[in-house]
């Protein structure tokens, strides 16, 4: 495997973008939770804090990436993995809430299922997850990706 042909710089740049979007998604969730948001997203203060945590993981990945390639890979991998898994959980949670409301005969909007800011942040993280996990598995084959 040859490092130089790998589009690392794109993935690395993408990590930066995902850091920003995840952070923004976190801030939006918290603002919604505090009642000063747009009302488009689900208010969720703890969820927002978790998004900020994940953004911090990405940020660490970006900072580490300048000198320590495996550090970048592992931090962005875990960040993206958590984000995608949590987004899946968020969809399930909202689906559950939606069905409960319907079954209890109350008003419910189908759109709430996808209004968790996790989902939007996670969509951007999917390419990162795919790319980085390839690199990660590469690290175990004699460590050529890790310099």
């Amino acid at each position: 495997m040859n490092n130089t042909t790998y589009p690392h710089q794109y993935l690395y740049g993408w990590t930066g973008i995902v850091t920003l979007t995840t952070g923004i998604a976190g801030i939006i969730s918290i603002r919604e939770g505090a009642g000063i948001g747009t009302g488009l997203f689900i208010p969720d203060i703890p969820g927002g804090c978790i998004l900020l945590l994940i953004a911090a993981l990405f940020a660490t990945a970006v900072i580490k990436g300048r000198t320590d390639r495996p550090g970048w890979i592992s931090f962005s991998y875990i960040g993206a993995l958590l984000l995608v898994v949590f987004a899946g959980c968020a969809i399930l949670v909202e689906t559950g809430n939606f069905l409960t409301l319907i079954m209890e005969g109350e008003e419910a909007h189908l759109l709430t299922i996808v209004s968790s800011s996790f989902i939007w942040a996670a969509i951007l993280a999917i390419p990162l997850l795919a790319g980085v996990s390839k690199l990660l598995y590469g690290c175990s084959c004699g460590g050529d990706c890790c310099e």
Binding site: G71, I73, S74, Y77, I78, Y137, C139, S140, C141, G142
Partner: peptide
């Protein structure tokens, strides 16, 4: 030989 091993130590570094 080369295979898909999850490099646990890299992951542990974060978790």
């Amino acid at each position: 030989s080369m295979g898909r091993v999850m490099p646990g130590d890299l992951i542990d570094q974060v978790l």
